[in-house]
């Protein structure tokens, strides 16, 4: 199957992710899922906003958060969003190697982001005595930010799996929608992070 579906620049469809029925279904289904994810994260944001003042005698948001690390994390994730745009650009030009390269850069940036987040959490837990159980503020914070971190981890595993599974196959109309959908997921992670750094960190310290 993959032989006849292997893309060739001469007959390259304009939107390889939507060239097959399966691709179109994946595309639609995934956007439906993202609509649901929006609501899911909204409930976590609402919970956080409602409970952020309940610090139970522990550290408050403006005592706890520093902006330097958050700024670095924001830049890492924003840049990784652009690198996955480059990956899809090369996918549309049927350049499998360059697509893999840019996906690899995306994964490295995502890992750096995750490393920063783990460092932040361990600092809070070990030195600030701010844990999941210390207050309602703590529970809401770790649920919201940790759930986003979980999405980053899942996205990384997803992209690495796709890269490894298709390393020898190359690009075809069967796996192009898979790469496209994974990149949508990665952008959505950055969408959520924009609200986290605004609502949790910036509005927390102001």
């Amino acid at each position: 199957m993959s032989d006849e579906h292997t893309l060739n620049p001469e007959i390259m469809p304009e939107e390889p992710e939507k060239a097959t029925l399966e691709g179109r279904n994946k595309f639609l289904g995934f956007w439906f899922f993202l609509g649901g994810e929006t609501v899911l994260f909204a409930s976590l944001f609402g919970t956080y906003l409602a409970l952020k003042g309940s610090n139970n005698g522990g550290p408050t948001a403006d005592e706890l958060f520093g902006l330097e690390l958050v700024f670095i994390m924001t830049m890492l994730l924003l840049t990784s969003s652009l690198t996955s745009v480059y990956a899809i650009y090369h996918m549309k030009n049927n350049d499998f190697k360059k697509m893999q390269l840019w996906l690899g850069i995306t994964v490295i940036l995502g890992l750096a982001f995750l490393g920063c987040e783990l460092y932040e959490f361990t600092e809070y837990i070990l030195h600030e005595d701010f844990t999941f159980r210390s207050s309602a503020f703590g529970s809401a914070f770790y649920t919201l930010v940790g759930f986003h971190g979980g999405h980053v981890l899942f996205g990384l595993l997803w992209i690495v799996t796709l890269m490894a599974r298709n390393a020898k196959r190359g690009l075809n109309l069967y796996n192009a929608p898979k790469f496209y959908v994974a990149s949508l997921y990665w952008h959505f992670i950055d969408v959520v992070w924009v609200f986290i750094f605004t609502v949790v960190y910036l509005m927390g310290v102001i």
Partner: peptide
């Protein structure tokens, strides 16, 4: 069109959810 419907629908429910809790 359908992705827009889903995202705007999601955003509308998200707004109501946050508003309600706050």
């Amino acid at each position: 069109e359908l992705p827009s419907l889903m995202m705007y629908g999601g955003a509308a429910v998200a707004f109501l959810t946050v508003l309600t809790m706050v």
